[in-house]
């Protein structure tokens, strides 16, 4: 039975699409047949991050409107087997998404995939609600700053009241993914710590992705950052995927790197 996971945040620019690309790639690398759907109709981005922007012919809205078959619209990832992308339409808006339409597409995808990752648009309106409505699990992407935390809190409230599982009296399994984490700035109290965010949101921590130049580089190259095995961010996403699959992996990159002498002196990790 396919699992539907929404990647959401409320706030924009926190790393939903980057995380969707990385996590879906990670799941596919682990051997699970995965599809990642861009729900950001009108502001299509996932195709860029996945590096398949020139291969988009049909999109999600075409499939909903039965102008194309799912098979025609799905783009097979060139780097990772088992991975498919369903891009958003750039010429429509969020109203093109209907509950029935989305459900029909998801039902069809469920038959042949293990994981369906829904990359939610920012906000709490139609697009975001469609992305989370059918979710079994939710990855809430949060930056360590107050406005992002509050928006994540808001979206958690919506998950608990407006998702299909909530309407059926069941819970959506929630995961916290803290991105753009900079331990040095946490130490100088410029940034909220993992503990601060966990205390406010009170949901299990899936992973902490350190702020890293490699993320921007990977995005611009159209290559999910998880494929960059050298980068801290890539490794952190790999850990997060393992946790999502039920493994217990210790959290890394939570402390500022201290160099040489100081590192030994302070006993830093």
């Amino acid at each position: 039975m396919a699992k539907i996971i929404v990647v959401t945040s409320g706030k924009g620019g926190v790393g939903k699409t980057t995380s969707s690309a990385a996590i879906s790639t990670g799941l596919a690398l682990a051997g699970h047949k995965t599809v990642v759907i861009d729900f950001d109709v009108g502001l299509r981005n996932l195709d860029l991050i996945m590096g398949c922007e020139r291969r988009v012919v049909y999109d999600f809205v075409n499939v909903i409107n039965k102008e194309a078959s799912l098979k025609q619209a799905l783009i097979k990832d060139k780097r990772t087997s088992n991975l498919f992308i369903l891009p958003a339409s750039q010429t429509r808006d969020k109203d093109a998404l209907t509950i029935e339409g989305v459900q029909a597409v998801l039902d069809e995808l469920k038959e042949s995939f293990d994981f369906i990752i829904c990359d939610s648009p920012a906000g709490i309106e139609q697009g975001a609600q469609m992305a989370l409505y059918f979710a079994d699990e939710a990855i809430v992407v949060t930056n360590p700053e107050v406005s992002s935390v509050r928006d994540s809190d808001r979206i958690l409230g919506i998950l608990q009241s407006k998702s299909m599982r909530a309407e059926q009296g069941k819970a959506v399994k929630e995961h916290l993914l803290l991105t753009r984490y900079n331990p040095a700035r946490v130490e100088t109290a410029e940034m909220l710590s993992v503990a601060d965010v966990e205390e406010i949101l009170a949901i299990p921590l899936l992973g902490v992705i350190p702020e890293s130049e490699s993320v921007l580089k990977a995005s611009n190259q159209g290559q999910p950052v998880i494929l960059d095995e050298e980068a801290n961010a890539g490794q952190a996403y790999t850990d997060a995927v393992k946790r999502l699959l039920g493994e217990t992996v210790e959290h890394r990159f939570l402390d500022a790197e201290k160099k040489g002498f100081f590192k030994r002196l302070l006993g830093g990790k």
Binding site: R150, D151, D153, R154, L156, G157, I158, Q160, S161, L201, A202
Partner: peptide, 8 residues
């Protein structure tokens, strides 16, 4: 029994 979230 659950946290009451922002906006609720």
């Amino acid at each position: 029994m659950r946290p009451v979230r922002s906006g609720q």
